[in-house]
């Protein structure tokens, strides 16, 4: 009886190892490099100095634009970001790129989440992208700020003409984590790197499903109705850009 079990276990392990070897031989991996870039008025976003205008004719400058992205997928294939689950994109950084490996093939869409999952909002002290040191955590009302946009505008009614949008919220009716899905033909070839350029268009931040006028909404600092109204535009902000955007 015991001998039989040993023989069977032996065969089982042999089959399993063969299966692993076959799968490994067949899935050739390619690399995808996802770049985030930011534009306003069709120009690469410049901090502090450049003055832009939204569709309502309100002029503004930007001093900060940061947001969390995660849960990347090409079609149904999850991309592993390695150790961290989220990346904090900082538009004031010269480069925001995410590198991942995945099986070769022709893919038709890329998907990612803007924001932080509700469980990661309630799991205590974190490190990496979610370290509260990144100033993307509300200390007085626990939860992550998913997107932080700050700047100035003559249209703003807040002190010193400030614009302060801290957008977040993970609880049921206040949840603003948004899934962004962009269609494109993405061919991943084994042993090669494919660049994907995702563009954040600030013009659409103000004007898409919701009309966000700086005069009416210079400040949003907590989860709730206003944050939801602004987040309704998140889907329209992103597009797959062309490689020609240069800095």
């Amino acid at each position: 009886m015991l001998k039989k079990t040993i023989v069977f276990t032996g065969i089982f392990w042999w089959l399993l190892m063969m299966a692993v070897i076959i799968v490994n031989a067949q899935t050739k991996l390619g690399t995808v490099v996802i770049h985030f870039s930011h534009t306003a008025n069709q120009q690469p976003l410049q901090f502090n100095d450049s003055v832009y205008a939204n569709d309502f004719g309100e002029r503004y400058t930007i001093s900060k634009l940061k947001y969390y992205v995660g849960a990347f997928k090409l079609d149904e294939k999850n991309l592993s970001l390695g150790f961290d689950k989220y990346v904090l994109v900082d538009a004031n950084q010269t480069e925001n790129k995410i590198i991942a490996q995945l099986p070769e093939g022709n893919y038709h869409s890329i998907q990612f989440k803007l924001g932080v999952d509700s469980t990661d909002n309630c799991s205590g002290a974190q490190t990496g992208a979610l370290d509260p040191l990144n100033s993307m955590f509300w200390t007085w009302n626990s939860g992550y700020i998913f997107l932080k946009l700050e700047g100035n505008s003559s249209a703003s009614t807040a002190p010193d003409g400030r614009i302060e949008h801290h957008i977040g919220g993970y609880k049921d009716s206040m949840n603003v984590a948004s899934t962004i899905r962009l269609a494109d033909n993405i061919a991943i070839e084994a042993g090669k790197a494919k660049d994907i350029y995702i563009s954040f268009n600030l013009d659409r931040y103000w004007n898409a499903a919701s009309k966000i006028k700086i005069k009416e909404t210079p400040v949003c600092m907590s989860p709730g109705f206003l944050a939801k109204t602004i987040a309704a535009n998140f889907n329209a902000i992103f597009s797959i850009g062309s490689k020609t955007i240069t800095y």
Partner: peptide, 16 residues
């Protein structure tokens, strides 16, 4: 009830 986890609670008094 604003704080959802004991580990993040000290951030409130420290930075207030």
């Amino acid at each position: 009830g604003a704080i959802n986890h004991l580990e993040v609670q000290p951030l409130a008094p420290l930075t207030n």
